[in-house]
Computed example of a mutant assay.
Amino acid sequence: MITTETHGDIAVLRLDHGKVNALDLELCDAITRAVGSTEADAIVLAGAGRAFSAGVDLRRIVAGGADYVAAFLPALSKAFLAVFDCPRPVVAAVGGSAIAGGCVLAAAADHRVMSGGGIGLTELLVGVPFPVAALEIIRHAVGHRAASLANTGVVLDPAGALAIGLVDEVVTADELLPRALARATAFARIPAAAFALTKEQVHRPARTSVEALRTTDDPRVIALWQTPERLAAIAAYLDALSR
């Protein structure tokens, strides 16, 4: 589900779950555990196969229904925040599509290198909202452009993502992992305590908003995802995609 490669003092955590690393309850829990347990000086977060992550596994949502949603959405936020709050440097190596939750996962990293695919927030196109943690992570990454990304569901190519700061570097596929490792190594040379405190300070506005709003916003998000009408609409959306 997540493979770990060691490159000196850097851990490469690679999502390896199905064809497109879709985010389900098990993968979210695995991300949280893997990021939280690594003892490496820095982390490179990558995807196996043709995608970084294509976002939430909507088929699991439909199959699991309201009870699954109630367990899954908090686990999704926990996985995002495990990356965002990690005291160690985290570099995202985006070698393929990073859609919806995959986009948020990449945005939670300290630095994002992209070589191909598309990246964007598409949840509203399916008719469901994001938990507050996801939106605050995106707002931290791209500022006022978060509203346009969320409201339009636009999927950007690497150059478009670079233009708005959603990624920091665009490289070729062959350069992706070497460049991500080089960036992680440079971060790891910074004294760890100083890096961790500075990261905490830089992230504080986003984390303050998350903690202030989760108890009111997230229950409303879960409730919208759980409605029979919305689950039926997601099923119809998936059916249309398969035709």
Rank of each mutant, 00 (worst) to 15 (best):
E136R: 11
L166I: 01
A161P: 02
V167N: 05
A141E: 10
S148A: 15
V132F: 09
A150E: 15
P158I: 02
R145Y: 10
G143T: 04
T152W: 09
E123P: 01
P129M: 05
L125I: 11
I119S: 09
L166N: 03
A147C: 02
R145D: 13
T152A: 11
A146Y: 11
G117A: 10
A133R: 00
G165C: 06
P158E: 04
L121A: 13
V155Q: 15
L162W: 05
I138P: 05
R145I: 02
A147P: 00
E123N: 14
G143L: 11
V126G: 09
L162T: 06
H140N: 06
F130V: 08
I137E: 01
A134V: 00
T152Q: 10
F130P: 02
L156G: 08
A163K: 14
L162M: 04
H144L: 12
L121V: 10
G165M: 06
A134M: 03
G118K: 15
A133Y: 01
L166F: 03
F130Q: 14
A161C: 08
L125K: 12
G117P: 06
N151G: 04
A146R: 15
A141P: 01
D168A: 01
A134S: 05
P129W: 02
G127P: 03
P158F: 05
D168N: 11
S148V: 10
L162P: 00
V155F: 12
V154M: 13
L135G: 09
L149A: 05
G153W: 02
L149Y: 02
R145A: 12
G120H: 09
G153S: 01
G117L: 08
I137T: 01
L125R: 14
G127T: 06
P158S: 04
E136G: 00
G116Q: 08
V142C: 07
L166W: 03
A146P: 00
G165Q: 08
V167I: 07
R139V: 07
E123F: 15
A161G: 13
D157M: 12
V167A: 08
V132A: 11
E123Q: 14
G117W: 08
I137N: 00
G165D: 05
R139Q: 09
V155Y: 12
I138L: 14
I164W: 10
H144I: 12
G116R: 09
S148D: 12
G165F: 05
D168V: 02
E123L: 15
F130G: 03
R139D: 07
P158M: 08
G120A: 07
G127H: 06
V155H: 09
F130M: 14
R139Y: 04
T122D: 07
V132E: 09
L124A: 12
A134Y: 03
L124S: 14
V142E: 04
G143C: 06
A147K: 10
L121N: 08
R139H: 08
H144A: 15
G118E: 11
L121K: 06
L135N: 07
V132L: 14
G120M: 10
P131W: 10
T122G: 14
A134Q: 01
G165P: 03
P158G: 01
V155M: 13
G127D: 09
I138T: 08
A150Y: 15
A141I: 01
